[in-house]
C-alpha cells in the first residue's frame, strides 16, 4: 500500500489530520511531473492538467482504485496543489526572481514558454478574487479550483463535491461570471 493510499484510507475513516499530510505529497509529485513533462515533451504536444493529475494519481495511489470518495479527496488536494504551483510560478515570473531550486526553475521556464491561457497578471488577479470567493462561498471556490486548476469536467467536479451535475454546472457558471466581473 502506498503512502497516499494509506492517507486516503485514513481520510476515509474520518481522520481530518490526514488531509494535511496529503497535500505536500501531491504537490511535490505534480511539480515533478510537470517539470518532467514540460522539459521532455516536444513542442506542439499538449499538456493537460487533467492528464497530469490522473498520472499523479496512478503514480501515488496505483491501480488499487479505492473508490470515488477517496479519489475525491485526492482531486481536491491535487487541485489545490496545482493552484499553488501555478500561482507560485506566476509570482516568481512576475518578480523575475527565481528560486535557487533547480526543479523550480525548470517548472518556471517550462510554464513561461507555455502558450498560456492567461498572463501572470491574470492568474494572480484570479487568485485574489478566488480567495474572496472562498471566504463567502467555499464550495464554489472549490468548483473553480477543480475545473480550472485540475482540469476536471463538470461531471467529475460534481462527483468530487457530491452534488448533482446540474448544480455543479450552475455553480461553475455563476462562479465564473462572478470572478470575471471581480477581475474586471
Amino acid at each position: 500500500m502506498t503512502d497516499v493510499t494509506r492517507i486516503l484510507n485514513a481520510i476515509g475513516r474520518g481522520d481530518a489530520k490526514a488531509t494535511d499530510e496529503l497535500l505536500p505529497l501531491v504537490y511535490e509529485e505534480l511539480r515533478f511531473l510537470a517539470a518532467q513533462k514540460l522539459s521532455h515533451e516536444p513542442p506542439g504536444r499538449t499538456l493537460q492538467a487533467t492528464a497530469l493529475v490522473h498520472e499523479a494519481y496512478i503514480r501515488l495511489v496505483g491501480d488499487e482504485a479505492p473508490g470515488w470518495t477517496s479519489r475525491g479527496h485526492f482531486f481536491k488536494a491535487a487541485a489545490e496543489a496545482m493552484r499553488r504551483i501555478l500561482i507560485d510560478s506566476a509570482r516568481r515570473r512576475k518578480s523575475k526572481k527565481r528560486g535557487g531550486d533547480r526543479q523550480k526553475i525548470e517548472v518556471d521556464d517550462a510554464i513561461a514558454c507555455l502558450r498560456e491561457a492567461c498572463s501572470p497578471d491574470d492568474l494572480l488577479a484570479l487568485d485574489e478574487a478566488l480567495a474572496r470567493l472562498a471566504e463567502t462561498d467555499p464550495v464554489k471556490a472549490e468548483v473553480v479550483k477543480l475545473r480550472y486548476f485540475a482540469g476536471l469536467t463538470v461531471e467529475q467536479t460534481a462527483e468530487v463535491l457530491g452534488v448533482s451535475a446540474t448544480t455543479a454546472k450552475l455553480h461553475w457558471a455563476y462562479a465564473r461570471a462572478w470572478l470575471l466581473r471581480e477581475i474586471g
Binding site: 496545482m82 498560456e116 482540469g151
Partner: peptide
C-alpha cells in the same frame, strides 16, 4: 454584468494547463 461575462469567452474556459506548448 454577470450575464455579459457569462456570454463571453475568457481564459477560464480552458483549464490552465490545457494549453498547447508552443509560441505565444
Amino acid at each position: 454584468a454577470l450575464l455579459q461575462y457569462h456570454d463571453s469567452t475568457s481564459f477560464l474556459d480552458v483549464p490552465v494547463f490545457d494549453a498547447d506548448v508552443g509560441p505565444d
